[in-house]
């Protein structure tokens, strides 16, 4: 790796073909988020965030570079980070021990939101294979459920997943907690009214439009189910 490819100040040419106004517009969108001023106060370049960051250990990724590029409003570097780095962050927030009070992980969250909102190809790639999770969270209000634990999806978890899969129905009945017992397609039993309120939240806050950017087919499926449910409300 040469200096030209790692230095945050010199490496801003990898997307030279992308018009400056597009980079600027995306940057301004991140910057205009009401949370932005709480997440960035400048940067000492001390690297404390990097020393705590798990993703910095395993990827070519640096919360320091993120804080610094944004603080300097280096839009070329910002654009590279948006396109290449943000999906590597583990969102653990170990970096908030920053002595400057920054929240580099929070900045990543804001950048991811913008990437998703614009349906950037990299965001779609990063979320490949993720649609079934979005389906579950939007419809059930739960991220995961027992029926998602399938051997072909978690082969690296070993023979345990196969054993679980074979026994899921009985094991699920053998839980003494009333709201969990015998529930396999969600984490717990949720009232229909509660789910209708959740759907209202998704529609009222523009969240469904975000889903449309990620996966149009999924969006249509979700809207159909949710609208039917909302119309059937007593």
């Amino acid at each position: 790796m040469s200096v030209a490819t790692w230095s945050p100040t010199k490496a801003g040419h990898r997307y030279a073909e992308v018009p400056e106004e597009i980079k600027r517009q995306l940057f301004e969108e991140v910057k205009s988020d009401p949370r932005y001023p709480d997440f960035l106060y400048g940067c000492y370049e001390c690297g404390i965030c990097v020393s705590a960051c798990p993703s910095a250990r395993f990827y070519d990724f640096s919360p320091r570079v993120i804080a610094q590029a944004l603080a300097r409003e280096d839009i070329d570097r910002f654009y590279e980070i948006l396109m290449e780095d943000i999906w590597n962050c583990a969102q653990c927030f170990s970096c908030v021990r920053c002595p400057r009070g920054n929240n580099p992980g929070g900045l990543v969250t804001l950048m991811r939101e913008v990437a998703v909102r614009h349906g950037l190809e990299q965001a779609q790639q990063a979320l490949q294979g993720y649609s079934r999770v979005i389906y579950k969270i939007m419809l059930k209000g739960n991220q995961v459920s027992p029926d998602m634990l399938q051997p072909d999806f978690f082969p690296d978890w070993g023979p345990w997943v196969r054993e679980f899969s074979r026994n899921m129905t009985a094991w699920r009945k053998a839980i003494p907690v009333d709201t969990l017992r015998n529930v396999t397609d969600a984490a717990w039993r949720t009232d229909d009214k509660t789910l209708r309120e959740l759907y209202t939240i998704w529609f009222e806050t523009g969240n469904m439009e975000v889903i449309r950017e990620v996966d149009e087919g999924l969006y249509e499926l979700l809207v159909e189910i949710m609208e039917e449910e909302l119309e059937a409300a007593p």
Binding site: T109, R112, I134, I137, T179, D191, W202
Partner: peptide, 23 residues
Amino acid sequence: DPTDQTSCTGWNYYASATSNAVA
């Protein structure tokens, strides 16, 4: 032990950012 509860949906938010602050 309520049934009138959803998860915080934060796992999805931290994973995919397919939501927003108000939601």
